[in-house]
C-alpha cells in the first residue's frame, strides 16, 4: 500500500476516533446537568462571533455582536460589527433595527417560531427535548458535541445538521454550527456568557 494512502487512512481514522458517542451513564449525567441548569435560567447575555463559511471563499465572513435571552422567550440578536443591526424576537413578531431604521416583520408564523426556537434553544440547550430533530451525543476532545438532524420538513429545507458544543462540565453551549444543504455553514462562538443577570427592559424595546 502506498505511504500516502496509509497516511490518509490514518488521518481519517484519527478524525473519526475523536468523535466518541457518549455512554448511557455519560448521557444521563449530561442531560440531567443541562436540564437542572436550564430550569434555573432566567436570563442570558453573551457576546458572539459569527463566522460564515462559503467553500469558494478563502476567508470566512465574520460578524460580531451581543445576544440577550429572557426566560419568557424574548430574544435579541444584536450585531455591532461591521454593521449595527439588531433583531428582536418577541410576542410572535420580529422587530428589526437597521442602524436606526426600524421595521417589523410579521411573516410566516410557523417559520418565525422555528427560527426563534432554534436560536434560543441552541443557546440554552432546550432543543434536546425537541420532536423536530433526531439527536446524537458525542465526546470530542474536551467538549460534548450534540448533533441535531432536522426531521421537520420546513427545517430540512434550510439545515441538514445543527451541532452544539458544550465544554465538559458546563451547561451552556459555547459554539453552534449550522450546516446548510449546500454544505456551507455558519459557526457562532459565544464568549463572556452571563447567567441570570438583570437585563435592562429597554434592551427589548423597539
Amino acid at each position: 500500500m502506498k505511504p500516502v494512502l496509509l497516511l490518509f487512512i490514518f488521518i481519517s481514522l484519527n478524525i473519526y476516533a475523536q468523535e466518541v458517542p457518549l455512554t448511557e451513564t455519560e448521557l444521563k449525567a449530561f442531560t440531567t446537568r443541562i436540564e437542572t441548569e436550564t430550569k434555573k435560567l432566567t436570563s442570558l447575555t453573551t457576546d458572539f462571533e459569527q463566522q460564515k463559511h462559503l467553500a469558494f471563499l478563502s476567508n470566512d465572513i465574520q460578524s460580531y455582536g451581543k445576544m440577550f435571552l429572557r426566560a419568557d422567550g424574548a430574544l435579541k440578536w444584536s450585531y455591532t460589527e461591521p454593521n449595527k443591526y439588531s433583531v428582536i424576537f418577541k410576542n410572535n413578531a420580529i422587530y428589526i433595527n437597521d442602524n436606526g431604521k426600524k421595521s417589523t416583520v410579521s411573516g410566516d408564523q410557523d417559520m418565525f417560531k422555528k427560527i426563534n426556537h432554534l436560536i434560543a434553544g441552541s443557546v440554552s440547550g432546550k432543543l434536546f427535548n425537541d420532536n423536530d430533530f433526531s439527536i446524537r451525543y458525542f465526546k470530542v476532545d474536551n467538549e460534548i458535541k450534540v448533533k441535531l438532524i432536522p426531521d421537520n420538513k420546513t427545517l430540512k429545507k434550510y439545515l441538514t445538521e445543527v451541532h452544539l458544543y458544550f465544554p465538559q462540565n458546563e451547561a451552556l453551549v459555547s459554539k453552534v454550527k449550522l450546516i446548510e444543504p449546500s454544505g456551507d455553514y455558519t459557526l457562532i462562538l459565544f464568549k463572556n456568557k452571563k447567567l441570570n443577570v438583570k437585563i435592562d427592559p429597554n434592551i427589548f424595546k423597539h
Binding site: I61, W77, Y79, V87, L178
Partner: peptide, 23 residues
Amino acid sequence: ILVIKTIDENKKRLALISDFGNT
C-alpha cells in the same frame, strides 16, 4: 451580504447570504 469571487477570466461565483449567515 453579497459575495463575489473571480475564479478565472471566464468564471465567477456570486452568493447572497442573510445577516444571520444562511445562504
